[in-house]
Each structure stands twice: as structure tokens, then as C-alpha cells.
Amino acid sequence: MTLPGTAEEALALLEPHAEPGKAEEMLAYHKVPRRYLGVANPVINDMTTEWRRALTLEQRLSLAEALWDTDVHEGRLAAAKLLTQARIRPDAAVWALICRWVPDFDGWAVADHACIAGQKRIMADLTRLDEVEGWTVSDHMWSRRAALVITLPLAKLNHPDAAQAAARERVLGWAAGYVADREWFIQKAVGWWLRDLSKHDADRVRAFLADHGAQMKGFARKEASKYLA
């Protein structure tokens, strides 16, 4: 197995897996002007899994930072995947790097991969919600959206403890503040969060919709209600 030491080496390992015409398809689909290699997500998963196992945390942090800064689509996905791990100790530098990426979010695909890495760090330390709360009032729409995407695991808990239940309510408060936001991606994120919560606490979602559903766009309300009887 060849391990990359630099972002350029990592991209060189990914590039041979590019599929003809896929880079152009990805640009047309994502509509975010940056370089696309045309490498499928499962390939990036497999390669970054190997790198994550073999590299030290310090090496992964350095490589992830460099890959993100290339602004290559697959490079940014790989950067996020290098840091997607439930148990990382110490993890303060990982959390700080993910937070540094948030203002760069400009599309759902890259943002969601970075947020999945961030979800692990949130669940490892719920006090990080204090920093995430600042994103909810950002002028940057993708930062506001990230506050909900990065906290999705809280919606999926069957038996939250007291701290997790309080954190869940805190995020629902943010969601309530978002219902008047007309941005499609914000409305989608609210619906998504409520939809996932409805599988574990349907009554809480019904109460939210009773209080705020009239302000939500129809598609978001429908999304939130998808699994309600």
C-alpha cells in the first residue's frame, strides 16, 4: 500500500481511478465551480480507510488540511473522510480544523462529508454546541445549515441521557428559529432533522409542527411528517 505524504501525492493516487466523462457530469450535477477528478465515492472511501488506519493522527491532520486547501472536489471529500472516526483522542485539533472548513462550504456534498466528520466530535463533547450555535446566526447560508447537519445524531438517539436530551432541545430551538428562513437548503435541513427525530420521538415532532409547521415551506413540512402516522 502506498501512503501519501502530501496532498499532491494523495490526488495522484486517486486520479488513476477517474471514470471517463465523470468529472464533467459531477460539475454539471453539483454546480460548484472547482476541479473534479471524476472518481467515484466508494473508491475514495476505500483509499481513505487505508490511509486512516496507517497514518498517525498528526499525519492525517496535516494531509486533511492540505487536501482541503487544494479545492479539488475529491480532495475535500478525502480530507473529511480522513477525520471521520468515532474515537479520536485527543481530538481538539480535529474539531478546530473542521470548524475552520465551515466558512468554505459552498455545496451540499462537500459540506455533508465534513459535517459527518464533525458529528463524531459533537457526540464526543456536547459542549461544542456552544461554538455551533454561533453558526446559526451567520450570514453564510451553508454555515447556518451546517448547524443542523452536524447535530443530526442527536435526532437519532432512541434513549438520550439528560445531557443529550437537553442538547436535542437546544437544536430544536435553532430549528424553530429557522422556519422563517426561506432558503431552500435551510428548509430542507429543518425537515430532514425533524424527519429523523420522528422515528424516535414522534410526539416531539408533532408538537414542533403544531407550533411552527404553518411557517415552514410545504415540502419541508411534508419531509418532517414523512414517518408520522
Rank of each mutant, 00 (worst) to 15 (best):
143 S>G: 13
123 M>R: 01
125 D>S: 01
161 D>I: 07
159 H>T: 14
135 W>C: 00
147 A>I: 11
126 L>S: 04
144 R>V: 09
137 V>P: 01
160 P>A: 09
158 N>W: 06
146 A>M: 12
146 A>Y: 06
144 R>Q: 05
140 H>D: 11
161 D>M: 01
147 A>P: 12
121 R>N: 07
142 W>L: 04
133 E>K: 11
123 M>D: 09
157 L>R: 00
153 P>M: 04
154 L>S: 10
133 E>V: 06
136 T>Y: 07
132 V>T: 08
127 T>E: 14
126 L>I: 07
124 A>H: 12
148 L>R: 00
130 D>S: 13
135 W>T: 06
155 A>Y: 02
138 S>H: 12
149 V>G: 10
140 H>Q: 12
128 R>M: 03
141 M>R: 15
135 W>H: 00
162 A>D: 13
121 R>G: 07
153 P>R: 01
134 G>P: 01
125 D>G: 01
134 G>R: 11
129 L>V: 05
154 L>T: 05
148 L>W: 00
155 A>V: 02
148 L>V: 14
142 W>H: 08
146 A>E: 10
136 T>I: 06
153 P>D: 08
132 V>R: 00
138 S>T: 11
132 V>P: 05
155 A>N: 07
142 W>T: 04
160 P>H: 08
122 I>D: 00
153 P>W: 02
